[in-house]
Design a protein around this nucleic acid. Structure first.
Length: 570
RNA sequence: GCGGAUGUAGCCCAACUGGAUAGAGCGUUUGGCUACGAACCAAAAGGCUCCAGGUUCGAGUCCUGGCACCCGCACCA
């Protein structure tokens, strides 16, 4: 598609009206197919040329020499519209899809590295539904960046360090639980989550417990062996369940470097801050002032000397730069933490790390839950958040009912039901602008009709089904492109041709929703094509079958980039 | 109070980054399976794009000021 734009631009340059660059800047895609494939609005030229836009467009239409592959140019109400020749588009697109396969539309390696920090849940708590957002947005972004030519480091910055562990330790000991290794090995996250919740509850009436927890964490941080044994057990128990769910969702990481990993890398950061006179005492704790950026101070150390969130993020950022030499470092974390990241990035700036400008917070809206008639941010602590595994189980169960009603003979139906369910939840999270808040409501989440994951997967399944039924593979040489110029085929081909541009746009904007909306476009045009153009047994069978093959490959890869399961049967 | 995000059809959202008649889905009404998968396709109804100004050939999109809702703001992460 890019080359069409280039060619139109140079053809326009040849008319002497403007430069190719200026033409490219004006060139856009009209909203309606009847206005062609590309358009130049001539309104902005009116002033300098001292002519009506309508006349300019008409003169250009008469002067411009049509590049090959374009069938028509026309002037309408001040717009100069270009039409691509349908057969030419079919040939150029399908040739390339068949040559590149699943990687059609991917960019060549750009030699750059991107670190993506995502999911990063807290140890000791069960995954709540809202963790799906960071996990699936990050998972999709890491696939998209790879397709856009980057080397990707997927990092799970586990919340495995901090006062929360002081709380768990205090609560565990308060309940007099056995601390022999065997008991510790058999701990589950569920128990830890309950422990955590009861701490919140009990500490409300016993204010001293918060201090106790802080003291316990300080002791842990200072290397107390018994506390460390407990901490390790809590961590292992959570990680086990975490891995089970990631595995189920098809999500993987290159590094599980949690906060505790940076424990021994913090002193160097503190030394540097002190050396550069950036750290001062304020209200009995160590902070870096950020007045010059209109930001609140960044808290580095508590009054008892133990570290905070920001401290560990500073150490992590420096470690990542040294270890991976990233060109970009992304943090897929909810919008509520925008201030925190601004603070951390600006401290890096003050430390003289020029690469602070390569750090990006990729925010997303929070999941709101109805609590006492009001929408609020759900909290694992107070138990108002729904658990991820409960939501997945419910989705799987509901999909299984669909399958039992429509295709009861399906093999592996439990697994497929789960894959459809997880994909549906994922798609629901990815299809809209990241930054919008999501109001969690069981009926909405469990609705699988219309613009949903199952709709997109169903399109893929139908394409696969035709391929299977055909029993052979159509060859490029058998295709008569003139047989693919009817509206349904043309619209589908036009959509397939957009893949590369969509991947780049999704990458530039850090927006998986660009690809999710694109997946809907593919599914819609594919459903329509299948519906209107009979493939098997038709006079155009081989040409149409080839188009089905191409559409299937494109859709499969787009599903994969979104982190959805590209299932072949449902 | 200060800062950030959002506001588009009854509901949930798009709108290719300033372009042509603002588009889908859900819900409502209606038509289409002896059919390559109907988890589909097609049609109808539904709009002062929160309000008030401004910028220009042109604004849902940019600027200013309000309003509503959500989220942050010193020892949680």
């Amino acid at each position: 598609m890019n080359s069409f734009e280039q060619e139109i631009a140079s053809a326009l340059e040849a008319t002497g009206t403007f430069t190719a660059d200026a033409a490219l800047k004006l060139l856009s895609v009209p909203p309606d197919t009847t206005h062609g494939n590309f358009t130049i609005p001539c309104f902005s030229l009116a002033k300098t040329m001292r002519k009506a836009p309508k006349i300019i467009a008409e003169e250009l239409a008469a002067q411009v020499k049509l590049p090959s592959g374009l069938s028509k140019v026309e002037a309408v109400n001040g717009y100069l519209n270009f039409f691509i020749d349908r057969g030419f588009l079919a040939k150029s697109t399908l040739d390339e899809v068949s040559a590149k396969g699943l990687e059609y539309g991917h960019a060549a390696s750009n030699g750059k590295t991107v670190c993506i920090d995502f999911s990063s849940p807290n140890i000791g708590k069960e995954l709540a539904f809202h963790h799906l957002r960071s996990t699936m947005i990050g998972n999709s972004l890491s696939r998209i960046y790879k397709a856009a030519g980057y080397k990707v480091e997927r990092i799970n910055h586990l919340g495995d360090w901090g006062t929360a562990f002081g709380k768990l330790i205090v609560m565990y000991l308060r309940e007099n639980r056995p601390t022999d290794q065997e008991t510790l090995d058999s701990l589950t996250v569920k128990e830890l989550n309950i422990l955590y919740a009861s701490f919140s509850k009990i500490s409300k009436e016993n204010p001293g417990m918060e201090d106790e927890a802080r003291a316990a964490f300080t002791k842990l941080e200072q290397g107390d062996e018994f506390y460390r044994k407990l901490w390790l057990a809590f961590r292992a128990a959570t990680l086990k369940e975490l891995m089970r769910i990631y595995d189920m969702m098809g999500v993987g990481f290159d590094h599980y470097t949690g906060e505790s990993f940076f424990e021994d890398k913090i002193p160097a950061i503190l030394d540097e801050l002190r050396e550069k006179n950036l750290m001062i005492k304020s209200q009995d704790l160590d902070v870096v002032m950020l007045d010059e950026f209109d930001l609140n101070p960044c808290l580095i150390r508590k009054s008892d000397g133990s570290t905070l969130y920001a401290t560990r993020d500073l150490a992590a950022a420096c470690y990542r730069k040294a270890e991976y030499n990233f060109d970009k470092c992304l943090y897929v974390v909810d919008l509520g933490q925008a201030l925190h990241f601004k603070q951390v990035f600006h401290v890096l700036k003050k430390m003289g790390r020029e690469w602070y400008k390569d750090m990006y917070h990729i925010p997303f809206g929070v999941i709101l839950q109805m609590v006492d008639g009001k929408w609020e941010k759900g909290k694992t602590r107070t138990g108002t958040a729904s658990l991820l595994r409960d939501v997945i189980d419910a989705a799987q169960k509901k999909i299984l009912e669909f399958i039992d009603a429509k295709n009861p003979e399906l093999e592996n139906k439990e697994l497929i039901a789960r894959e459809i369910g997880i994909s549906a939840l994922t798609f629901n999270d990815l299809k809209n602008d990241r930054v919008k808040d999501v109001r969690f409501d069981w009926d909405a989440v469990m609705s699988f009709e219309g613009d949903t994951g199952p709709y997109v997967q169903n399109a893929h399944v139908r394409l696969c089904s035709i391929l299977k039924k055909a029993g052979y593979t159509a060859a490029l040489a058998d295709v008569d492109y003139a047989q693919l110029t009817d509206d349904a085929a043309y619209e589908l081909i036009k959509v397939l041709a957009k893949k590369g541009g969509k991947i780049l746009a999704a990458c530039e904007q850090d927006q998986p929703s660009v690809l999710a909306q694109y997946a809907l476009e593919i599914a819609e045009t594919a459903h329509k094509f299948i519906h209107e153009d009979r493939v098997l047994g038709s006079a155009e069978e081989k040409s149409r079958l080839f188009l089905v093959q191409c559409a299937q490959v494109v859709l499969e890869n787009v599903l994969d980039l979104l982190g959805l399961f590209p299932i072949r049967q449902m």
